[in-house]
Structure formats: structure tokens, C-alpha cells
Amino acid sequence: MIVLGLTGSIGMGKSATAALFEEEGVPVHSADAAVHRLYAGKAAPAVEALFSGTVVEGVVDRERLAARVLGDAEALKALEALVHPLVREEETAFLDAARARGEPLVVLDIPLLFETAGEGRVDRILVVTAPADVQRARILARPGMTPERFAAILDKQMPDAEKRRRADVVIDTSRGFDAARAEVRALVERLRRESPT
């Protein structure tokens, strides 16, 4: 089975690209979606213990949590030490199930793949990208996003140019869905042919 790592900086079109893989019948494990599930369940009590007042009715309030950890390196490190192992557990279960089904190809959607030294967990790396002005416009259009918050998030991420340099495949999402869909389809066909499964 080929494990394709999908990554890219914030606002580059990662989630939309992951959905294109799902359209092609490729199983996708999203680290972000796993965090959402964990924040609504298993991780909530531990997050509340670390950051009192960030859990509302049993669910982590992401805005309150962001206000506590963004710009505080120690707080962020503590949160990551709690959440990352739980996400990895879900990822391992996903991969085991896919292998058992005989899947030829799966996608791990990992926003901070390079930043968390995740290259060893995947066979190939796809980086999604877009020009900086497109990225900025996409992000600042999100509810609650400010230029300061955007800058703080970007500050934690490896520069886009370095991600592209390390990638096996790069897809520019600024050319629209049809172009991205065609590139994803061609990549899926090629990787399925290469898969030992």
C-alpha cells in the first residue's frame, strides 16, 4: 500500500484537495478532523485540566483554546504533547484497517507534516500551494481570523518554498477545481499502478 502524505501551509487548499482524493475513492485520514473528534470527546477533559475554561459543555472551544496558546510556545508545546499521540493512534488504526482491506493507496492529510518530522510515516509527499496573495485572501476571509493571528500561524509553519522543494508532487490550487481534480486523478492513477498491493 502506498501512503501519500498531503500537506501545505494554511489556506493552500489542503482540505479541498483531500476531498478530491475521496471523490476518486481513495481513503483519507485527516489530522484536523481527528483533532475535532478528540476535542469533542476523549481529549476534552485533559485539555480542560491543562487550560481551564477552554471546554464548554464537554467540547473544547477552539477560539478560547487558540486565545490561550497562540503566541505562547510553552503552552502550545504542552497542547501538542497531549494531542499529537492521540491523533497518531487514530492514524495507526486507519492505516491498519486500510491494509487489511487491501487498499492500494491511502492519503494522510497532515497539516504540519514537515514541522513534526512526519516524512518517515509516508511513502510520497504531495504539497498543495498557491501564490501568497491568494493564500492571504483565503485566510483573512475566514470568520474570526485577523492579520495578527494569520501571522502567528504562519510563523509556526515551514515556508511554502521549502515545502515545495521537499515534495515529490506539487499541485497549485489557485488554478481552480477542474485543474486540481485533473491533477489528482492523474496522480491517483499513477500511484495505484505503482502500488505493490
Rank of each mutant, 00 (worst) to 15 (best):
G5N: 08
E103N: 01
D61K: 03
M158C: 02
G102N: 04
V83Y: 00
A66V: 05
I171E: 08
V3E: 01
A130M: 03
V127A: 01
A186E: 08
A97S: 14
S30Y: 04
A141V: 11
A18T: 07
K42F: 10
E189C: 10
V69D: 13
T7K: 13
R190G: 12
I139F: 12
L65R: 07
H36P: 08
M158P: 08
A73V: 12
F94T: 05
A16E: 11
A78G: 14
G5F: 00
E183S: 13
G13N: 03
P85A: 09
S195L: 01
R121I: 04
M158Q: 13
Y39E: 06
R136I: 03
L4V: 07
A78C: 12
A67F: 13
A98F: 07
F94N: 14
Q135C: 03
P147D: 03
E23W: 06
V128D: 04
E57Q: 15
I139G: 11
A186N: 12
A40Y: 12
K42V: 14
L86V: 00
G41M: 04
V83N: 04
A66S: 15
D72Q: 11
D178F: 02
L70T: 08
L50Q: 01
D168P: 09
A151I: 10
R165W: 09
G13Y: 01
R62V: 07
E115I: 05
A182E: 07
A46K: 06
T116W: 07
E148F: 02
L82A: 01
L187N: 02
R99F: 15
E183Y: 12
V169D: 03
A43D: 06
R166A: 12
V87W: 01
G8K: 07
E63F: 14
E162G: 11
E194G: 06
A78N: 09
R190W: 00
M12C: 06
T7P: 06
E189P: 10
R190D: 13
R165Q: 09
E103P: 06
E115Q: 05
F114H: 00
F177M: 12
L65F: 11
A152D: 07
R99G: 05
G5L: 00
A141Q: 14
A40I: 13
P143C: 04
V127N: 02
V47K: 01
L140A: 14
E162V: 05
A81M: 04
G11N: 05
L20F: 06
L38Q: 11
A34G: 10
D123H: 14
A67P: 12
R121C: 11
E63N: 11
G102L: 11
I171R: 06
R185P: 04
A19Q: 14
A141E: 15
P196F: 07
G118H: 06
F150S: 09
G11S: 10
H36M: 06
T129Y: 00
R136C: 08
L82F: 02
D133T: 12
F51T: 10
L82H: 09
D123W: 00
T146S: 15
P27M: 11
L113H: 00
A31V: 03
V60E: 15
A31L: 05
F177C: 14
D61Q: 08
V26E: 00
V60M: 12
G25W: 01
V26F: 02
T129K: 00
D96Q: 09
R190M: 02
E91K: 14
L70Q: 08
M12Q: 03
